[in-house]
């Protein structure tokens, strides 16, 4: 059994070596998960804000759906996408199977419910405080959305980071639609699965520690950029 301190030393050595293949794998992980998170944010944030601000037909169903899909199993998303993107599937002509784009698509589908549900929950309370003021001004409710997203940027950031966390950590979907092809669709999580299957448990754990470090770094940088030290200190914005 490899022990954890050996894995930690291995992880530090890996960073020191700046191995080209490892950099490429880590880079692809970040590229795929950033892309998926960005697309999920573009869809999920306005949707979450709209759910907080507006009362429309089907609103309850969307809220219920987003919350129910928080636990969407990645392997099911992967399998369904595989059947859609397969050459004999309905979207086969797009030639997306076993490409990074297919992995972005899979992670986007996994992140959208998380971003939507958390944005809705976070912004709902804020809107019930500031909403009446906007309505007194006589403005169209939806025009207040940028203001709501700006005032609730802490909640927005948490929703987006939760989506990113889901994307960067999952392996079940991308190993099916990406295929874990060396130099093409191999990411940190699929590389960890591969190394484990080859019995290189210490190296697999070292990769795992690197992945955790990457994920934590992204969160810290995001908080720093947003100037949200309060989250770290107080748990939530007053």
């Amino acid at each position: 059994m490899p022990d954890f301190s050996a894995a930690l030393r291995g992880a530090i050595m890996l960073i020191g070596q700046r191995d080209g293949e490892l950099l490429q794998i880590a880079g692809l992980s970040l590229f795929v998960s950033f892309s998926a998170t960005a697309i999920a944010a573009v869809i999920g944030l306005p949707l979450g804000a709209a759910l907080a601000m507006l009362r429309f037909r089907g609103r309850g169903a969307i809220v219920l759906g987003a919350n129910a899909l928080l636990g969407l199993p990645p392997i099911v998303v992967g399998l369904a996408l595989y059947l859609l993107l397969s050459r004999i599937g309905p979207l086969g002509m797009l030639d997306l199977l076993f490409t990074p784009a297919a992995m972005v698509l899979a992670q986007t589908l996994l992140a959208i419910p998380i971003v939507t549900a958390l944005a809705h929950r976070g912004l709902d309370a804020i809107w019930s405080e500031i909403g009446p003021a906007f309505q007194i001004d006589g403005a169209q409710t939806w025009q207040a959305m940028p203001h709501l997203l700006a005032i609730g940027r802490t909640q927005v950031l948490i929703a987006v980071l939760a989506g990113f966390g889901r994307a960067i950590s999952e392996v079940g979907a991308i190993i099916i639609v990406g295929g874990n092809i060396a130099g093409h669709t191999r990411t940190m999580t699929t590389a960890i699965a591969l190394e484990t299957s080859e019995g290189n448990l210490g190296f697999a754990l070292a990769l795992g520690l690197l992945l955790v470090a990457l994920s934590v770094t992204v969160s810290l940088v995001a908080f720093a950029v947003a100037g949200e030290r309060r989250i770290v200190h107080h748990g939530r914005k007053p």
Partner: peptide, 14 residues
Amino acid sequence: NWLPVFCGTLALGA
């Protein structure tokens, strides 16, 4: 500001 960059890179990748 980053969104166009992500989407652009995605299109290039394909």
